[in-house]
Nucleic acid binder design. Structure first.
Length: 597
RNA sequence: GGGGGCGUGGUGUAGCGGUUAACAUGCCGGCCUGUCAAGCCGGAGAUCGCGGGUUCAAAUCCCGUCGCUCCCGCCA
């Protein structure tokens, strides 16, 4: 139907007889002359319809409206002097139309397709997602996603990886997120679970001898949604045999770097090689294991200095073995009046209390070098101690110092909350991609509620070789081989070296509260596989949606997913989920037992 | 499960106790042979998400509810 796209014709094509097809982006009626901007995926080309030269085409053009689907036949012509449009790639030419066919009509769209600025009610967009997808930003986002995935496939293919599909109908795993269940008709009363990730299967592919596997894998987790979390999402899932942690990280860092350089060259990488931050340091300094390191607000341990102050809270906490941390906010105090400052301090304290703290002390550094340190706890620090504090914090005139002291978990939460608060005010550059690695995670995290250890990543993560002995003596101190790739505060990916030895795997189960019987029932196939020459192996999984979101500069992952779910987990276009027919339920031997109102 | 935000012609917003519910854009009609966010003239289009309450009077205040969204819990 079309000889050319709407984005490719240029001056050199003048005189060519062409046929274009696409959507009416806009129509401008001059009376005897009608201009139609015809749009397709590749661009926009202007067609001109002249009443005298082509009366039939003109009559049709007269009836055309936005989003009508047209086939236009005509001749490429260089636009008359002074009428070129420099804003349009095809703006030097237009098509003198001699024949127009309406392939389909369109209602007036419920929102603008042809201009992209301004917020739109997301429910409305979702209800007509097929129209929303026609908008330029959505076209670009989905195209970018394709390019990223294509790049990954090509890159890994060149590295001798092969793509293997693993089943969507699989088995429930008791750990981690809630499963989506699918009832089995052939096995009444039994359920498949949709995979939360192909973790077990990819390890079994290593036992299967493929050595280098990847998959663009759909994963499912039945948990509440967020701007960066959908119940079904796409992972780059990857596994390699005969590798150590460093081998995987090196290759993955190269992949990330090349994606940015070649697919989104307008983005800048903040550092290379990517900074590596120990899990413990990330928590201590940033309060989170996925820090946004585009800005440098950190919590600094000043327990030693604070412990010598006269402030009873600090002294007592340090005595009790708790830390006192300080965050320096450069210049904030210098720009505020006393009243404003007290209000800011109050708001920050409210924030800290929400994060679990009992309070949030502060001190301001005067811009005048002879001035006094101000703030509720200033008086508890002697002159000498103040100087030590300023030196330790690298404080300058006008800075605001915030103090946190409590249980470690609370201090982390406050640090994270404060950082997120200031981040919002900093107007950070989205074109800057601050990748970093987080590593040396603990193998386990204590679950106080169930009185057991939980795997920090998952139960197949190999402890660091030098910490293996701790599994027996002090599991809480054992570090795992896990590594996470973080970018601008988002966890983009995570991986580890896996256990390939049955004896080690069997040590994990009792620690995480599983009996051997349970373990064999659920994971007997894994344990058995390890006994048939399982190679050492490790890998990684990337959240493709999050990666593309960051590369697109999109505010959430729904913007890079063609048909995402709403926060309630629904599709308001097709009305999913929906009720099942009684006959379907009967086939599955399912009876509904809905709560009474 | 909990906390916050939003909901006003098709769309985006203003109005925040008494307005003829305003503006822009879109839509419909007319004029116009070089426009490109076209222009000019005219017109239609809103019981202000829904339900209840307070009040002489509610888009506006209160309660509930529904929808979308952000965050905590949950989730790596």
């Amino acid at each position: 139907m079309k000889t050319h796209t709407c984005g490719e014709l240029r001056e050199k094509d003048a005189g060519t007889s062409v046929q274009l097809a696409g959507w009416v982006n806009r129509r401008r009626d001059q009376g005897g002359l009608i201009f139609i901007d015809l749009r397709d995926r590749w661009g926009i080309t202007q067609a001109v319809v002249d009443l005298e030269a082509a009366p039939e085409a003109h009559a049709i053009a007269d009836s055309v409206r936005n989003e009508y689907v047209l086939r236009i036949h005509g001749t490429v012509r260089i636009r008359p002097e002074g009428t070129a449009n420099p804003d349009l790639a095809t703006g030097d030419i237009d098509i003198v139309a001699d024949q127009i066919e309406i392939l389909n009509r369109s209602h007036t769209p419920p929102f603008y397709i042809n201009k992209d600025e301004g917020a739109l009610d997301e429910a409305l967009r979702m209800r007509h997602r097929y129209l929303d997808l026609r908008r330029e930003t959505m076209q670009q986002n989905i195209l970018l996603r394709h390019r990223v995935v294509k790049f990954i496939r090509d890159f890994l293919d060149a590295e001798d990886f092969i793509e293997i599909e693993t089943p969507i109908l699989f088995k429930t795993t008791p750990e981690g997120a809630r499963d989506f269940l699918v009832p089995s008709r052939l096995q009444p009363g039994m359920f498949y679970a949709l995979p939360q990730s192909p973790q077990q299967l990819k390890q079994l592919l290593m036992v299967g001898g493929f050595e280098r596997y990847f998959q663009i894998a759909r994963c499912f987790r039945d948990e509440d949604l967020r701007g960066d979390r959908q119940p079904e999402f796409t992972q780059l899932d990857l596994e390699m045999s005969f590798v150590q942690r460093e081998d995987v990280m090196r290759l993955m860092e190269q992949l990330a770097t090349e994606i940015v350089r070649q697919v989104t060259p307008q983005k800048r990488l903040i550092a290379q090689p990517f900074p590596r931050i120990r899990y413990r340091d990330a928590l201590e300094q940033y309060g989170t294991d996925r820090p946004d390191i585009r800005f440098d607000l950190r919590a600094v341990d000043i327990s030693e200095i604070a412990g010598r102050s006269a402030f009873p809270v600090f002294a007592a906490n340090v005595q009790a073995g708790k830390k006192v941390k300080c965050m320096r906010v450069p210049g904030l105090a210098g720009t505020l009046s006393g009243t404003q400052l007290r209000k800011v301090a109050r708001d920050l304290e409210t924030m800290a209390r929400r994060a679990g703290a009992k309070g949030l002390a502060y001190i301001t550094i005067p811009t005048d070098p002879a001035g006094e340190l101000k703030g509720p706890i200033g008086k508890f620090f002697s002159v000498e101690l103040k100087l030590e504090l300023l030196a330790a914090m690298g404080a300058q005139g006008g800075d605001l110092l915030l103090f946190m002291s409590d249980e470690a978990q609370i201090v982390y939460a406050v640090t994270d909350a404060l950082r997120n608060h200031f981040k919002a005010e900093l107007d950070l550059d989205d074109d800057l991609l601050a990748f970093c690695w987080i590593y040396d995670f603990p193998e386990f995290i204590w679950d106080a509620e169930h009185q057991r250890w939980d795997p920090s990543q998952h139960m197949f993560t190999m402890p660091l070789p030098e910490d293996l002995h701790l599994l027996d003596s002090d599991p809480g101190r054992a570090r795992g081989s896990q590594y996470d790739l973080v970018c601008n505060g988002y966890e983009v990916g995570g991986g580890s070296i896996r256990i390939h030895d049955r004896a080690i795997q069997e040590k994990i189960f009792p620690l995480i509260g599983q009996s051997m019987q349970q373990a064999i029932a659920e994971f007997g196939h894994m344990l058995e596989a390890f006994e048939y020459g399982a190679p050492p192996h490790g890998g990684m999984a990337w959240g493709i949606d999050r990666l593309v979101m960051l590369l697109a500069g999109a505010p959430n992952i729904r913007e890079v997913i063609a048909f995402p779910k709403t926060q309630g987990g629904t599709d308001i276009m097709a009305h999913a989920p929906s009720t099942a027919e009684p006959e379907q339920l009967r086939d599955l031997h399912i009876q509904l037992d809905m709560p009474a109102e």
